[in-house]
Design a protein around this nucleic acid. Structure first.
Ligand SMILES: NC(=O)c1ccc[n+]([C@@H]2O[C@H](COP(=O)([O-])OP(=O)(O)OC[C@H]3O[C@@H](n4cnc5c(N)ncnc54)[C@H](O)[C@@H]3O)[C@@H](O)[C@H]2O)c1
Ligand SMILES: NC(=O)c1ccc[n+]([C@@H]2O[C@H](COP(=O)([O-])OP(=O)(O)OC[C@H]3O[C@@H](n4cnc5c(N)ncnc54)[C@H](O)[C@@H]3O)[C@@H](O)[C@H]2O)c1
Lengths: 213, 213
DNA sequence: TTATAATTGGGAATGATTTCACAATCAGGA
DNA sequence: TCCTGATTGTGAAATCATTCCCAATTATAA
């Protein structure tokens, strides 16, 4: 998949992920074709927004008809580069790390966790969901073997930068950071933050000062 | 805390949460005063962006000096409405639900989980982190007692709408949804989505098509 | 007391994104 | 084959967000 346009807004990428989610549900319910209007309703966005977002990547619809759900899912996933396997490693086998390691959905969606790392000697050697926990020191060696490109950080926040350094050192290309701390990495490494409290703060603000009036 | 301006961009709210995170780290490291320039570096944004974001809420800085870290944290948390206790309930005591229930940080940050609900009879009655798992049918009754205002959904995606309906019915004001499904609720109820795969899709896109060039 | 250096707050300019509006296109039926 | 109704794709307009820039303000030191 190649893009038609050079720069694509970050917000567009986020919405494309929502579209895929909603389209997959529609497909599961048996919908074969959908037009931008009802899809927009289901995604809580404007219909032309959807059409414009898709237009960055190509012409996927049929005028007078709408979009074929199955083929649109394929087009979007291909546009996002998720029509392949992505190998990932996880650092920090604690409460959250375990939940993620046991989460089947990763593999189903092509994000395969192929390595679990921790620095706690009591955890090293333990097997979780068919994966042996390995010492963080062996990260580079292991990534050399399994070719992972994405790292998932689930250490405590004060260790997040150290974990990131290990990942960068090992040649990782992207990081998903669950620890509530900003990390700094070379500009060619992509970082995404999953921060619970950001969302809770937004809820708090919206409930208190009203977003719906 | 009252706002100076009527409409505040959503992006501003998200950044304020980042500022708090970074400021708390600075405070822990002993920084008492900081100006917008170095704070901007640490948060990966533009310095005037920070000043403008703060200006929506008031004048928190001292010209020629910068911002007093402690007092700025207080000002921002007050602006976001997080300078109080928020009671929350969680629906869906599975893998992820358990990890969240055991997560101490919620209480520390004022988001107290005061109820855990599931529909599985094998889970009802179980005690997790001092909280007894209760049948979802008793949600309204329990919320009437404990006065929770925020609901956390950690059910499978196909049950997320049902869980949301229960929460709305019980008079909840905001929902944090971890299930990968859009939910529809009345407009006065606020919803935030925490979706792993949205972030992984963004990583995939950025790694594949380059965000750093 | 006054000059200097630093830094905020906010108006104006710029830039980006969203929405509008409609010509272009397509399926289906007359 | 041609007409009708539906719906896309896309410029242009409108809205929204970010960045620039500097007067206003403060601390400090001469
Ligand atoms: N538990 C949750 O529900 C939850 C939810 C949201 C965010 N988080 C965040 O996720 C992170 C992990 O949370 P948790 O509850 O799993 O914590 P945890 O303490 O249970 O687990 C942290 C793990 O990281 C390991 N670790 C520490 N330093 C390391 C290093 N340098 N290299 C490798 N491993 C290292 C520890 O040995 C431990 O196993 C925290 O930053 C937390 O704030 C947790
Ligand atoms: N496990 C993870 O690491 C992880 C990460 C990100 C997102 N998620 C998402 O979070 C959700 C939960 O994941 P999980 O791994 O904990 O799943 P899980 O199957 O372990 O837990 C789901 C729980 O919800 C309960 N439940 C089902 N329907 C219910 C209803 N109507 N009312 C109340 N409770 C109900 C089930 O009894 C079960 O206890 C899923 O939507 C998943 O996609 C999970």
């Amino acid at each position: 998949m190649t893009q038609k346009s050079d720069h694509i807004p970050r917000a567009t990428i986020q919405r494309l992920a929502v579209y895929v989610q909603v389209l997959e549900n529609l497909l599961r319910e048996g919908t074969e074709v959908i037009s931008s209007e009802p899809l927009a309703k289901a995604c809580n966005v404007n219909a032309s927004q959807i059409r414009k977002d898709l237009a960055y990547f190509g012409e996927f619809g049929v005028r007078g008809v709408g979009y074929y759900v199955k083929s649109l899912i394929d087009s979007i996933t291909s546009a996002l580069g998720v029509d392949r396997e992505w190998r990932t490693v996880l650092i920090g086998v604690g409460n959250l790390g375990r939940a993620l390691l046991n989460h089947k959905e990763f593999r189903l969606r092509g994000f395969n966790i192929v390595g679990a790392f921790d620095c706690d000697p009591f955890k090293i050697g333990e097997e979780i969901s068919g994966l042996e926990v390995v010492c963080t020191k062996r990260l580079k060696e292991k990534i050399g073997e399994n070719g992972a490109e994405i790292g998932i950080i689930t250490t405590p926040p004060e260790r997040a930068q150290r974990a990131a350094n290990h990942l960068v050192e090992a040649g990782i290309k992207g990081i998903l950071n669950f620890a509530p701390a900003r990390i700094s990495v070379p500009s060619e490494v992509n970082v995404e933050y999953v921060d619970l409290f950001h969302h809770l703060y937004a809820l708090s603000f919206n409930i208190t000062f009203g977003s719906s009036e």
